[in-house]
Design a protein around this nucleic acid. Structure first.
Lengths: 101, 101
DNA sequence: ATTATATATTGCTATATCGCGATTTAACGA
DNA sequence: TCGTTAAATCGCGATATAGCAATATATAAT
């Protein structure tokens, strides 16, 4: 992970809503039990929109930021987009931070 | 550490120069060997100014940000201000992030 | 084809952050 | 007291970020 990538990751975490989203995605069955599609796909954007209480476009931008940073992945199924944590990247990020900080 | 404090800490880290400063302070004898005062006091602001290449006022603001976040402490001796890492807080921050992320 | 749904993208305003030079404050020395 | 040095604070312009409504795009259903 380059220094530029690390920077992008930390910046992605520097907004409480984005950290909330990452946390919700940690236990989808707890926070998104009402999803009609299997949670194994991930959580679809609309439900995340609802949970934040922010507008659809704002949340879409937050999700894009998290994805660019590598923290989440997107899986498109039909007209829905499902998001899930990228645990491997998150682990790498944490160990990098533990060394470097 | 409250959620507001955590937020302030992550924001403090979300600027590369502030992360650089934290890193330099990890090994003062390596990066600030030319300091005339004992490094046990910490590193004085002027030397950090030089090392960043940014203006005095800009670096002063960065140092204030790091201090508000709790990452560094300030020790005033005569007309100089010496800064040092607050290892305990940094450790707490990392373990909090490891849990929460 | 048309309509409906899900979500990304665009255009905009408001606010926050960064960086600088200038000024102020504080401590020291002559 | 006066000048010097160190560093914080102020005022400013430039850029980045966040939020929204409106629009565009893509898929699905009728």
């Amino acid at each position: 992970m380059s220094s530029t990538e690390l920077d992008e990751m930390i910046k992605a975490l520097s907004h409480p809503v984005r950290r909330d989203i990452l946390n919700w995605l940690k236990q989808p069955e707890l926070y998104f039990s009402d999803q009609e599609h299997p949670l194994s796909f991930g959580v679809c954007a609309g439900l995340i929109d609802q949970k934040t209480g922010l507008s659809q476009s704002t949340v879409s931008a937050h999700l894009a930021t998290l994805q660019r940073a590598g923290f989440i992945s997107r899986k498109k199924v039909g007209q829905w987009n499902f998001f899930a944590r990228n645990e491997e990247i998150i682990k790498q990020f944490l160990s990098r931070l533990n060394e470097q900080l």
